[in-house]
Computed example of a mutant assay.
Amino acid sequence: MKLHFRTLGAGEPLIIMHGVFGSSDNWQTLGKVFSKEYKVYLVDLRNHGNSPHSEDFDYDFMVGDVVELMSDEGLSKSHILGHSMGGKVAMHLATKHSEMVDKLIVVDIAPKYYPPHHHQIFEGFHAVDFKNLQNRKDADKQMSAVISNIGVRQFILKNLDRKKDGSFEWKLNIAAIENAIEKVGARIEGDVSFDGATLFIAGGTSDYIDNEDHDLIRSYFSKADIVPVEGAGHWIHAEKPEELGQIVIKFLAS
Rank of each mutant, 00 (worst) to 15 (best):
D58N: 15
V146N: 08
F130W: 12
V67N: 07
N47K: 07
G151L: 07
Q154P: 10
H119F: 13
A90G: 11
V152E: 04
H79K: 09
V152W: 02
L104N: 04
N149H: 10
N132F: 13
S71L: 01
Q28F: 12
P111F: 08
I80Q: 08
V33F: 07
K96N: 14
H126L: 08
K88D: 03
S54C: 05
D72G: 13
A127K: 13
H118Y: 13
K103A: 05
L75K: 11
S71M: 12
A90C: 04
V67Q: 03
Y41W: 03
G31W: 06
P52K: 02
S144G: 09
V63W: 11
A139Q: 06
D102S: 15
I121K: 05
W27R: 11
S84E: 06
T95D: 01
K141Y: 12
I156N: 00
F155R: 10
E99H: 14
E73M: 15
I80T: 09
G87L: 02
D108R: 08
M100W: 11
L42F: 12
A127Y: 03
I147F: 10
K36C: 01
Q154L: 11
M62I: 06
Y38D: 01
L69I: 10
L133R: 08
E37T: 13
P52V: 09
V89E: 03
F155D: 01
K77Y: 05
S98Q: 06
Y41C: 04
Y41R: 10
V89P: 10
